[in-house]
Amino acid sequence: TYYTVKSGDTLNKIAAQYGVSVANLRSWNGISGDLIFVGQKLIVKKG
């Protein structure tokens, strides 16, 4: 599943929405910090 980042989104918010961990979101998307951008597509695997 792909999720497109919207204004106001955070990794924590997206992780909670999908029932996954922030660590997994980072791993699946090659993100090291907490910086995400509006319009960015993130890979999300269902929890």
Rank of each mutant, 00 (worst) to 15 (best):
Y2N: 07
K13A: 14
V5L: 02
I14F: 02
A16Y: 10
G47P: 14
G19C: 10
I43W: 10
N12K: 13
K46H: 15
K13R: 09
S21T: 14
N29P: 00
L42G: 00
K46T: 15
Y2I: 12
G33D: 11
L25I: 11
W28R: 03
G47Q: 13
D34Q: 08
G30W: 07
Y2F: 11
G8P: 03
Y2R: 07
I14V: 08
N24I: 10
A23G: 11
Q40G: 04
Y3A: 05
R26I: 15
K45L: 15
R26M: 13
V38A: 09
I14Q: 00
S21N: 08
K41E: 13
L11K: 00
N29W: 01
A16G: 09
T4H: 10
S27L: 15
D9E: 04
V20Q: 08
V38L: 09
K13D: 12
S21Q: 07
K46P: 15
A23F: 07
K6L: 11
G47T: 11
V22T: 10
V5G: 02
Q40W: 05
Y3F: 04
G33M: 08
G47W: 10
N24Y: 08
G47V: 14
A16I: 11
Y2C: 10
T1I: 12
F37H: 14
S7N: 12
K13W: 14
L35A: 11
Q17R: 10
Y3S: 02
T10S: 10
G8V: 03
F37G: 06
D34F: 08
I31V: 08
V5S: 03
A16T: 12
V5N: 01
K41S: 12
T10R: 04
V22E: 10
I43K: 08
K45S: 15
N12F: 13
Y3C: 04
V20N: 04
A23V: 10
Y2G: 05
T1Y: 13
N12Q: 14
V20G: 03
I36H: 02
A15K: 02
K6N: 09
G19V: 06
Q40T: 06
R26C: 08
R26N: 05
W28L: 07
K13T: 14
